[in-house]
Design a protein around this nucleic acid. Structure first.
Length: 647
RNA sequence: GCUGAUGUAGCUCAGUCGGUAGAGCACUUCCUUGGUAAGGAAGAGGUCAUCGGUUCAAAUCCGAUCAUCAGCUCCA
């Protein structure tokens, strides 16, 4: 038979050769690293015999598929270890996840740190046995018997009887005395798993259903070598160091206190500077692009949100209504504003609009309040009070695609300026199988999704489709950025809405003198200011670019005899609109520099007798070091230029 | 909201068997006036998250509440 390899080369092999044998023929290292194979596009076990011509590639840990198989097998290994330590434990689901694996188990034992270490040790021991992993195909009925009577695992039986009820033949993987229902593929033997780390235990509902029993979910990650595990641990450490909650406290950017309320961030003066700079930046850009600023109140009559449809869809994630009774006993209810759109729609319909007026782009940094579940709260990234850079574009259907494109363009401009270079785009579409989640007719949805796709294609962005990710009123384009250490965050969004114009009876007079329905685009490049800044802090590790830094320059006199000269520099910086501080303490220069470095101040101007005599300053950049001497007006011009260019 | 863990000085963290609170950094004062990541000395700083219980005695044991963290579920 002829086997085609990924590089296009063809090789002749006797029929019936296994994947491992093919890997061995290519190289010894590859045979060692081989975890599975892809035969004509299908993932298979490494010991699969190949009987006819096929294209074959060898899967190793370096690929996404390889990691997936590796971690999935690791979850089986963990289950085996748990079973050997605590016989009788029942097993639910145990998949690979983005960073590792978990297994949901049911046991009378309460698992904690100590048990995790015990399980890890057992896993390493089983890995040392290098037990063969064997696949067995059997009819579903036989598998039910097997799991009911031999394995005695009711969860596997339930999966076989319900989820897999239409499947004839299933596969079971065996390793030593352990067996698990699984479609595979799996590692050829347990010995491939050289390093494991179980991270934590949490709870989960069996089949994600809160009415079913809770299980203990054990998370872990594993690697084919100790070295890879160490690297992973170092990455986790780096993520901890960059945690925006930690940096936010260290740099006095924001605070959260139960005295104000859970999930209600307070911006400290330094954090407020960052936020204000970002707002100014976007306002400037939006002014160039024809947006009209508006302001709307923080509370609104509940009827407004009932009309928009938000209230029934989201009543459980809002703060309870404020109820007000007047002298006559008439009752009114107000809601803390959960979103800005209804207010903007009212602004739109406050005047008669002509087709010549469109598009109208209303914009506001609108603060909204949502009662997020307590377990969801996470610093700035998930808060209960936050400010959206929210705009609504009212346009004619023939202008829609252009307007979506320009919203995409603005969003990309914002990301580029802030240094988010790795951006994924998701077209969030509705799920036709779950129509009750959405407003509007299916024709309207079809049109909206077509428009979104057309705009994305025209802007030349590569995207993927997310079914069921749409909002209740329309499809979205969601921008997911990857930060400096590879984590993904959803930030900006552009959403098309044919539903709200109906609900609010929005209209414009067309060239035919008749009333027509405009289309609305909701868009927010930052998304929420809180969330965006939280992510920006983690992306930059608190090392803000000069234009955003709360303190841009610190003047560091070496000794008291140059204090007057240092003060004069400080004053000049201040007059040039540069945020500057001066450190007049009687500390040594080394200490002043150290503290400025820790405070992540981008520029330090070191001033001693030499500088004073020549009328210069010595520039030291954060994390870069000494950059030599500059004349006073030169340094101001240099910094001013850097700030103005937002570079 | 659910499951689990945690809560001690502004920050990071010790605190053994239940016996009345400790370090480093930061802060204040004094000395020191220096050349690119920590000069020295002294001082001040705590209702041990809150409320209740057990006990002669609670930071420590028990319960409730609040908050935080991890995960689940959810996300206009």
């Amino acid at each position: 038979m002829i086997i085609t390899l990924p590089d296009g080369s063809e090789r002749e092999f006797p029929a019936g050769l296994t994947g491992l044998e093919i890997a061995s023929s290519i190289g010894k290292k590859l045979a060692q690293d081989a975890l599975a194979i892809v035969v004509d596009g299908d993932l298979r076990d490494l010991d699969t015999a190949i009987v006819s011509n096929a294209s074959v590639s060898i899967v190793t840990f370096d690929s996404a598929e390889g990691k997936n198989i590796f971690w999935h097998s690791s979850s089986h290994l963990m289950a085996q270890a748990i079973e050997e330590l605590w016989p009788g434990t029942k097993f639910g689901a145990g998949p690979a996840i983005e960073q590792g694996f978990y297994y949901d188990i049911s046991s009378t034992e309460r698992f904690g740190e100590e048990e995790l270490r015990q399980i890890e040790a057992k896993m390493v021991e089983i890995s040392g046995r290098n037990s063969t992993v064997r696949r067995e195909q059997m009819p579903r009925e036989q598998a039910i018997e097997f799991f009911r009577n031999i394995r005695k695992d009711p969860y596997k039986v339930e999966i076989l009887e319900e989820t897999l009820k239409d499947v004839k033949t299933v596969s079971v993987y065996h390793q030593d005395g352990f067996a698990d229902l699984c479609s595979g593929p799996h590692l050829p033997a347990t010995g491939k798993i050289k390093a494991v780390q179980l991270s934590n235990v949490s709870s989960s509902y069996w089949r994600g259903d809160s009415s079913r029993e809770t299980m203990q979910r054990i998370y872990g990650i594993s690697f084919p070598s100790e070295k890879l595990l160490r690297e992973h641990t170092a990455r986790m450490e780096e993520a901890r160091k960059r945690d925006h909650r930690k940096i936010g406290a260290e740099l006095s950017l924001f605070m959260l206190t139960p005295e104000v309320g859970s999930g209600l961030p307070i911006w400290l003066p330094k954090g407020a500077i960052v936020r204000n700079e970002l707002e100014t930046f976007l306002k400037e850009e939006q002014r160039k692009r024809g947006y009209l600023p508006v302001y709307t109140p923080h509370i609104g009559n509940i009827e407004l949100y009932k009309r928009s449809g938000h209230y029934p869809y989201y009543s459980d994630s809002q703060f309870p209504p404020l109820t007000y009774k007047d002298e006559t006993g008439r009752e009114e209810q107000y809601l803390l504003k959960p979103m800005n759109c209804p207010h903007h729609h009212l602004i739109y319909s406050s005047a008669l609009r002509s087709y010549r007026d469109l598009p109208i782009r209303l914009t506001e940094f609108g603060t909204v309040y949502r009662h997020e579940q307590s377990g969801e709260l996470n610093g700035l990234v998930r808060a209960r009070g936050f400010t959206q850079d929210d705009s609504h574009i009212y346009c004619r259907p023939d202008q829609l695609v252009d307007e979506i494109c320009s919203a995409i363009d603005l969003t990309r401009f914002v990301f580029r300026t802030l240094g988010f270079d790795d951006v994924e785009t998701r077209l969030s579409m509705h799920d036709p199988a779950n129509q009750s989640k959405y407003g509007g007719t299916s024709e309207v949805w079809e049109q909206a999704e077509k428009d979104v796709k057309e705009a994305a294609d025209r802007m030349g962005i590569s995207y993927f489709i997310g079914i069921g990710e749409a909002s209740f009123y329309g499809p979205k384009i969601d921008f997911i950025v990857r930060d400096a250490i590879g984590r993904k965050w959803q930030l900006g969004t552009v959403q098309v809405d044919y539903v709200m114009p109906e609900r609010f009876d929005l209209a414009y007079i067309g060239s035919d003198g008749q009333k027509h329905r405009p289309v609305v685009i909701h868009r927010a490049p930052f998304g929420s200011m809180e969330r965006f800044i939280g992510v920006l802090i983690e992306h930059t590790a608190g090392n803000f670019p000069l234009w955003l830094a709360p303190v841009q320059v610190v003047v560091l006199p070496i000794a008291e005899d140059v204090h007057d000269y240092a003060r004069s520099i400080h004053t000049k910086l201040h007059e040039a609109g540069i945020r500057a501080e001066i450190d007049l303490r009687s500390e040594k220069i080394g200490k002043k520099i150290r503290e400025s470095e820790i405070s992540k101040i981008p520029c330090m101007l070191v001033i001693g007798r030499n500088e004073q005599e020549k009328g210069e300053v010595s520039l030291r950049r954060h994390r870069k070091g000494d950059e030599g001497c500059y004349g006073v007006s030169d340094i101001i011009a240099l910094l001013r230029k850097e700030i103005d260019q937002r570079s």
